[in-house]
């Protein structure tokens, strides 16, 4: 009788995908972004992706710093612009697998315009937005996803701005794959990212991550461990939630794959049209040369 343990985690050693000389990484103790990075690399591993063909483009912020630790082609670009850089890279190099790592501020505030157009364009890219409800890197200012009433260094009275449901935004803008997961459910998060990576168009994956040192402290959310556990107790699965009629609250977010659509992938569509044009031109040229033009 064979006795195999069904355990994909056993074959996956995250260190095989890290630039070990860069470790330990610069994130604060307990920062959820580290867990998200593991999930991404695990998904990369499971898909058997070639590190040489993997390009990670990240913006500025704690989330943006993650690319430096990945043993791949990594590009740490300007604040808010990773999707735009990635668009150029992916169009120019369709042979690469381009993944974007961005933060909530990076992606939704300064980079919001690029996000909606990336969703609309549907170029094959995977956008991993690490949402920790705050501008971690700059010391804890309010972000477009900060829940109402939360304290930040720029909302000393409690945030009174309504926040974004990034997934609803992405879906509305046309993203052909939209999903959300918490860092607490590492295997589920890995599955979601994996589905996003395998998706043949633009995939938007929001990861609910914890800024333990700054946001957690400011809002007295307890230790890193307590923050991770809170994800478990405060989030409800999408199956129980009417996404249209329930107002968005950060503690009532649907998770899992939230939207999936079959739309033409932009890069392939462009290359196809260009090839047709070239074939057409070549035919005409041939006809002309036939007439003896010199």
């Amino acid at each position: 009788m064979s006795s195999t343990i069904v355990d994909s985690a056993a074959e996956f050693d995250v260190r095989d995908y890290l630039r070990k000389e860069m470790m330990p990484h610069f994130l604060c103790p307990g920062c959820g972004h580290g867990i998200a990075l593991r999930a991404l690399l695990w998904a990369v591993h499971e898909l058997g992706m070639d590190k040489d063909k993997l390009a990670v483009v990240s913006g500025i912020g704690c989330a943006g710093r993650l690319s430096a630790y990945i043993d791949a082609n990594t590009f740490h670009v300007t604040h808010g612009r990773p999707l735009a850089y990635a668009t150029g890279l992916a169009l120019a190099r369709p042979d690469l697998h381009v993944v974007v790592i961005t933060g909530d501020g990076d992606c939704l505030a300064i980079g919001g315009n690029h996000l909606i157009h990336a969703c609309r364009r549907n170029l094959k890219l995977t956008c991993l937005m690490l949402n920790n409800e705050v501008y971690g890197m700059t010391g804890g200012q309010v972000s477009p996803t900060t829940s109402e009433t939360r304290l930040t260094t720029t909302t000393p009275l409690g945030n009174s701005e309504p926040n974004f449901d990034a997934c609803a935004l992405a879906a509305a803008a046309g993203a052909s794959f939209v999903g959300r997961e918490v860092t607490h459910h590492v295997p589920k998060l890995k599955e979601l990212i994996r589905a996003g990576l395998a998706h043949p168009g633009f995939a938007f994956v929001e990861v609910l991550s914890d800024c333990t040192e700054i946001f957690g402290r400011k809002n007295e959310l307890g230790s890193s461990a307590e923050m991770v556990l809170r994800q478990k107790s405060e989030l409800r699965p999408s199956a129980y939630r009417d996404t249209v009629n329930t107002p968005f609250r950060s503690n009532d977010l649907p998770t899992g794959v939230l939207s999936k659509r079959d739309r033409p992938e932009y890069g392939a569509a462009y290359r196809k049209a260009a090839a047709a044009q070239r074939a057409d031109a070549a035919a005409k040229d041939g006809a002309r040369t036939g007439k003896g033009e010199f």
Binding site: T78, R81, G88, L89, L91, A92, R93, Q277
Partner: peptide, 27 residues
């Protein structure tokens, strides 16, 4: 497109230069 290249109109000038640098980083 005639020479196997790519043209893309981006959402603004920031995205345009970013995409150009991205493409160039791709070689």
């Amino acid at each position: 497109p005639q020479v196997g290249g790519v043209f893309v109109q981006m959402e603004d000038e920031i995205a345009s230069i970013a995409a150009v640098i991205g493409a160039s980083m791709g070689g």
